[in-house]
Design a protein around this nucleic acid. Structure first.
Lengths: 222, 222
DNA sequence: TTTTTGTTACCCCTTTGTGGGTAGCCTCGA
DNA sequence: TCGAGGCTACCCACAAAGGGGTAACAAAAA
């Protein structure tokens, strides 16, 4: 299991709880091939360190819920900054949208905090070797995303009246300006609704929203 | 791990190699909660048995590569026939398209034949309990599918080949940048194709194009 | 009562998309 | 052999969309 002669993986731990960082660092330090070389208490700090440290990091373990930049935002920023260390999100959340978004933004893994320490070590090692580190409980989330349905273990998706109105018009291909005219509200307000719809559904663009609406039959007559 | 008082899961093994069925049956029979009650040497035979056996099967282990109907085609046929037993594809192939297609057609799991017997038992038990049985090596395939990529195809319109490719990806909600990555061309070139598609179809936005594609069946979901 | 939720509206800024152009390189068929 | 169509790639400019924030106000819930 332990790689032969290669260098140990240089790892940074990012979490706003020092105690948790400490525990993780101790856990990893016991492994010959895993070397915790840096810690950060926030996403901002993590970015600063990751872009300046030498030699470069091999792997970053990122807490999802942090004040300031959260794990996903930090992942995005790190990728934009050209950091190509493996990134693993470490979280208590098994929310569908969190997992999917994390992977979309460039994370290489998503582990749940309630995993056994031994299992965490195994997954981190797997990620360092280029595999996708994923808590076994989460595979069904990816599988259902593939199958195209999001319900089984997730949220029932409750859009407000207005959000549904906007989504319906998006699904007709209308621009924000047109939607504003049709609903007799400002374009800025339409944008607010669009933003919320995208966030609630875990989507990235109005086109995805339109597709979602069509597939879920939330579109009225075109 | 073993369920308390419930009935053992009734399992059918489908593979064109009798020896492999034999080995699997022996393996499963050693478990109190797993009960191999039927075997089939082909997809056709599997469908015949699954639709007639009483009481109904709980789980079907399907070889992917078989003469005649393969595992995925058999899965599709079984689902169409109303069989709602859990279906696990058992294969030597870790091809991206096989895994994704199997899940899309209604399989509940996808296991590789080179797994350890103990692990196979664990995964089958997990599937029987409603979880997604997936070889750990395959999680990265789902992850990359989530991140967005796929093989192209073609349909009948007055669009060029490349324009159809682009339109298909638009209909999956992908951005120009993602499309560029998937088709391995520059983003600028994607924009050219998008421009032409919109012009040829008389549309004003990619969202309208996506809707058009969905309504004209020029889209293949994830 | 206070708090929360939904709707409205605006600010900021960055990213993405749209529409026009030129141009090199293929392949296929006249 | 040449030309047309198709694919590639870049230029430019502007429009649209997305993501963050604050804030007012009414209605519903705690």
């Amino acid at each position: 299991m332990t790689p032969p002669i290669s260098e140990p993986a240089r790892i940074m731990l990012v979490d706003d709880h020092p105690m948790l960082r400490r525990g993780l660092a101790d856990l990893l330090a016991m492994e010959d091939d895993l070397q915790p070389v840096a810690q950060a208490g926030s996403g901002e700090e993590a970015i600063q360190i990751a872009t300046s440290i030498e030699p470069e990091l091999d792997l970053i373990l990122l807490d999802l819920n942090m004040p300031g930049l959260n794990g996903i935002e930090t992942t995005k920023a790190l990728r934009t900054a050209g950091v190509d260390a493996k990134i693993i999100i470490f979280s208590v959340s098994d929310e569908h949208s969190d997992v999917v978004e994390a992977l979309r933004e460039g994370a290489d893994g998503y582990l749940l905090k309630d995993m056994e320490p031994e299992e965490i070590v195994l997954q981190i090692r797997a990620a360092a070797q280029g595999k996708t580190a994923l808590s076994p409980e989460l595979t069904h989330i990816l599988a259902s995303a593939i199958k195209g349905r999001l319900e089984p273990a997730s949220q029932p998706v409750d859009l407000t009246r207005r959000e549904k109105d906007v989504l319906e018009l998006i699904a007709k291909g209308q621009s924000n300006k047109l939607i504003a005219r049709n609903l007799e509200i400002s374009e800025g307000t339409v944008k607010v609704h669009v933003k919320r719809v995208l966030h609630k559904l875990g989507l990235r663009s109005r086109t995805e929203a339109a597709i979602w609406a069509l597939e879920h039959d939330l579109a009225k007559s075109i």
